[in-house]
Simulated scan of single mutants.
Amino acid sequence: MIKIVQAVYQAGVEIKLHFSDGSFGVMDFSEMLSHKTSLTRALDDAAFFQRFFIELGALCWPNGLEFSAGSLYKRLEESGKLVKPAA
């Protein structure tokens, strides 16, 4: 099972994610946050957005919002933004 092992804030609503298989990519959360759900509205505040943390391999925020490593990995892979380690 893939896990997030490191997350580094970049700018705006972008976070560089490092995964347990050695791959990484910069995730732009603007599309996901545009849905304006009760959980995503809090992330409109830049200071709150930057309060993310990793818990059990998932990307989380203090209000209970979390994204699984697998879903973020898949989004990065499908968008061509996932950099995989050389074999």
Score class of each variant (00 low, 15 high):
Gln10Pro: 01
Pro62Ile: 00
Leu43Thr: 06
Ser38Pro: 02
Asn63Val: 04
Asp21Thr: 10
Phe29Val: 01
Lys81Ala: 05
His35Gly: 08
Asp28Asn: 15
His35Val: 15
Ile54Cys: 12
Arg51Thr: 07
Phe52Arg: 08
Glu14Ile: 01
Gln50Cys: 10
Arg51His: 06
Gly57His: 08
Val26Ala: 13
Tyr9Met: 08
Phe52Met: 08
Ser20Gly: 08
Pro62Glu: 01
Gly57Pro: 12
Gly25Cys: 08
His35Leu: 14
Phe49Thr: 03
Ser34Pro: 01
Gly25Ser: 12
Lys36Phe: 06
Met27Thr: 04
Ile54Trp: 00
Leu72His: 07
Lys84Tyr: 09
Ile15Leu: 10
Ile4Asn: 10
Glu31Val: 01
Asp44Lys: 13
Val8Asp: 15
Ala69Ile: 02
His18Gln: 13
Asp45Lys: 08
Leu39Lys: 12
Gly80Tyr: 06
Gly57Asn: 10
His18Lys: 10
Trp61Gly: 09
Phe29Tyr: 03
Tyr73Pro: 04
Leu82Asp: 03
Tyr73Cys: 10
His18Asp: 10
Lys84Asn: 07
Val83Leu: 14
Ala58His: 10
Arg41Phe: 11
Arg75Cys: 09
Glu78Val: 02
Asp45Val: 05
Arg75Asn: 13
Phe19Ile: 04
Leu72Glu: 03
Thr37Ala: 10
Phe53Arg: 02
Gly57Ile: 10
Glu78Pro: 01
Leu72Arg: 06
Gly22Asn: 14
Ala7Val: 00
Ser79Thr: 05
Ser23Lys: 04
Phe53Gln: 02
Lys81Glu: 15
Phe48Ser: 05
Gly70Gln: 11
Pro62Val: 00
Val26Asp: 12
Gly80Cys: 02
Gly25Leu: 07
Ala86Trp: 08
Ala58Asp: 15
Ala11Tyr: 12
Phe19Glu: 00
Arg75Ser: 09
Gly64Trp: 00
Thr40Leu: 02
Arg75His: 11
Ile15Trp: 04
Phe52Gly: 03
Ala47Ser: 10
Ser71Val: 09
Glu77Arg: 11
Arg41Gly: 04
Leu39Asp: 11
Leu39Ile: 04
Ile15Tyr: 03
Arg41Pro: 01
Ile4Glu: 09
Arg51Phe: 00
Glu55Ser: 11
Ala11Asp: 12
Gly22Thr: 12
Leu76Val: 05
Ser20Arg: 05
Tyr9Leu: 12
Lys81Tyr: 10
Gly64Ala: 07
Lys81Gly: 03
Ile54Lys: 00
Leu82Pro: 02
Leu43Ser: 09
Gln6Ala: 14
Ala69Phe: 04
Leu76Ser: 08
Gly64Cys: 05
Lys84Arg: 15
Gln10Arg: 13
Val26Cys: 11
Leu56Gln: 15
Val8Ala: 09
Ser79Cys: 04
Asp21Val: 07
Phe19Arg: 01
His35Pro: 01
Ile54Ala: 08
Gly80Ile: 00
Phe29Leu: 13
Ser34Met: 05
Ile4His: 14
Trp61Phe: 14
Phe24Arg: 05
Gly70Cys: 09
Leu82Ser: 06
Lys16Cys: 11
Phe19Met: 04
His35Cys: 09
Asp21Tyr: 00
Ala46Met: 13
Ala11Ser: 13
Phe19Asn: 00
Trp61Gln: 09
Val5Arg: 00
Asp44Val: 03
Gly70Arg: 08
Ile54Arg: 00
Tyr9Ser: 07
Glu66Ser: 12
Met1Thr: 09
Cys60Met: 12
Lys84Val: 14
